[in-house]
Amino acid sequence: MRTVFLSNFLGALPARFRRQRVLIVGCGDVGLRVARVLQGAGGGTRTGIAATAVSHAPRVRVLALTSSPDRVALLRAAGITPLQGNLDDSATLRRLAGLATRVLHLAPPPGDGAGPAQRHDPRTTRLVRSLRRRSLPQALVYASTSGVYGDCSGAWVTEARPVAPATPRAQRRVDAERSVRQLGRAGVRASILRVPGIYAPDRVGGTPEARLRKGTPVLTAPDDVFTNHIHADDLARACALALWRGAAQRIYHASDDTVLKMGDYFDLAADLYGLPRPPRLPRSAASTQLPAMLLSFMSESRRLDNTRLHRELRLRLRYPHVAEGLRC
Rank of each mutant, 00 (worst) to 15 (best):
V4S: 07
S7K: 14
G11W: 04
P14N: 08
A15F: 02
V22Q: 07
L23V: 06
G28P: 00
R36E: 07
G44W: 05
T45F: 00
I49T: 12
A50N: 04
R59L: 02
V60S: 10
V60I: 15
L63M: 05
A73R: 11
R76G: 03
A77Q: 15
G79L: 13
P82C: 05
Q84G: 14
L93N: 03
R94C: 11
R95C: 12
L99G: 00
T101E: 08
P108D: 02
P108T: 10
G113E: 06
A114I: 09
P116G: 08
P116W: 13
Q118P: 04
D121C: 15
P122K: 11
L127P: 08
R129L: 00
L131A: 06
R133H: 10
L136G: 04
Q138G: 12
A139N: 09
L140G: 07
L140P: 05
T158D: 10
T158V: 00
T158E: 08
E159Q: 11
A164S: 04
P165E: 04
R169G: 01
A170H: 01
R172F: 15
E177V: 01
R185Y: 06
A186R: 05
A186T: 04
P196E: 12
G205R: 01
G206I: 06
R211M: 12
P217H: 10
P217Y: 12
F226I: 05
T227S: 11
H229A: 01
I230V: 15
A232E: 11
W244Q: 13
R250L: 01
I251T: 15
Y252R: 09
S255P: 08
T258C: 08
T258A: 06
G263A: 13
Y265W: 13
F266M: 07
A269V: 10
D271A: 12
R280E: 09
A286I: 12
Q289T: 14
F297T: 00
S301I: 09
R303Q: 15
L304A: 06
L309D: 02
L309W: 03
R311H: 14
R318Y: 01
Y319N: 04
L326D: 02
L326S: 02
